[in-house]
Design a protein around this nucleic acid. Sequence first.
DNA 1: CTCTATCTTGAATGTACATTCAAGATATCG
DNA 2: CGATATCTTGAATGTACATTCAAGATAGAG
Lengths: 193, 193
Amino acid sequence: MRNAEFDREEVLRAAMKAFMHKGYANTSMQELKKATGLHPGSIYCAFENKRGLLLAALEQYRLDRATEFEQFFANSHLTLDNLKSYLTNVVVECISCDSAQACLLTKALNEIAEQDSEIQQVISDNLSVLQQALAEKFEQAKAEKSINADKDCDHLARYFLMGIYGLRTFAHTHPEAKVLEQLAEQLYHDVSQ
Amino acid sequence: MRNAEFDREEVLRAAMKAFMHKGYANTSMQELKKATGLHPGSIYCAFENKRGLLLAALEQYRLDRATEFEQFFANSHLTLDNLKSYLTNVVVECISCDSAQACLLTKALNEIAEQDSEIQQVISDNLSVLQQALAEKFEQAKAEKSINADKDCDHLARYFLMGIYGLRTFAHTHPEAKVLEQLAEQLYHDVSQ
DNA sequence: CTCTATCTTGAATGTACATTCAAGATATCG
DNA sequence: CGATATCTTGAATGTACATTCAAGATAGAG
C-alpha cells in the first residue's frame, strides 16, 4: 500500500562510495546513514544488515561496471584500440585519486574475503565475469588480425587483468600520472605485441 | 631493575601474522593477546596502543623482507636468474595460500592508508625501498649483459613490482599454481626481453 | 636478605558500534 | 474521505571493543 521512498540504485551507489572510501569495517552505520540518507531501520528493512548492504552494493557494482565496460566497445573502432582506451581509463581513474574510483572488488577482496567465503565467492565471480569479457575482446581482436593468431586469449586476459590490479595498487603509493601512463603503455605493448 | 620478559621480534612477527590474516580493524586486542602471548597492559606499555603495534610490526616486516631479499642475491648466479628466483618465490608464497604469506604492506595499504597519512607514508617508504633495491638489481643485470643496455632500469623495477602486486591480488581469486606460474613466466619474459 | 624499580596481570572502564523496535507518518485502495 | 498496510524515524539495547590502572610478582642492586 505504500512504496519505498528511496531510489535503490542511488542508495547502493552511495554505499559503494562509502565502502570504497573507508573500507567495510571502518564504515559505521552512522556514516552509511549519512551517505545513503536512509535511517538504520530502513537499511535493515531493505538489506537485512550491514553485510547485506555490502552484498547488494557489490551486485550493483558488477552491473555498473559491466555497463561501463560494454560502452568502451560500442563503436566501430578496432577492438584492440578499445582495449587500450579501457586501460587508459583505468589510469585516469587512478590519477584522479578520488577514492570513489578505487575498485570495490579488490578493496573488499583484501579486507574481508578471507573471512567470509560467501563474499569471497561473490567477488571471485564478479572478477571472473570481467576476465571472461576481456578474453572475448581479445578473441575479437585476434579475429580482426590485430593480434597474432597463435596467442592464447585467456592468458592475455588474465595478464591484462593482473596488470590492472597491479596498476591500481601501484597508484596508491605512486599517483604520478607519468609513471602510471608509462606502466600502462608497457602493459598494452606486452599484451598486444 | 628488571627487563621485559618477551622477545620483541617474536611478538612483532606474531602481530604481523595476525594483522595479515584478519586485517587491522578486525584483529581485536584479545586476538593480539592470544597471538603474541602478551597481556593488554604489556602491549600498551611496549607499543603505546594498537596502532603503535602495527607501526612496529610494519618496521619489523621491512627489516625481515630486506634480509630475505638480499639472500636471494647472495650467491654467484647471474643477477637476472636471481630475479627470476625471487619472482618464483612470490608465486610459491601465493600458492601456499597461507595468509601469513600475504603482503602486510599491500594489505595495510588497502585497508588504512587512505585514512592515516603517517601509516601511508611508512608503507610508501617501505615499498620505495623495495623498488629501489629492484632497480639496482636490474642495473646489475644490465652490467652483466643479461638485459639490453638501452633499458630503463627504474621503469623495469616499477613494472616488475606492479606485476608482483597484480599477481598477489590475482592469487586471491585464482590460486591455481599453473595459472600463476604462467603469469609470472610472462612477467619475467616482459622485463628481461 | 631486603628493598625498590620495573614488569605482569586481568578485571574494570567508558565508548562506539550494529541492531532492534515501537511510535508516528503517509501513500494507496475502496 | 476513511481505513490500513507499509514505510520512516530515531531513541533504546546489548555487545564488543580499545584502553586504563591498581594490585601482585619478580629481577637486580645494595
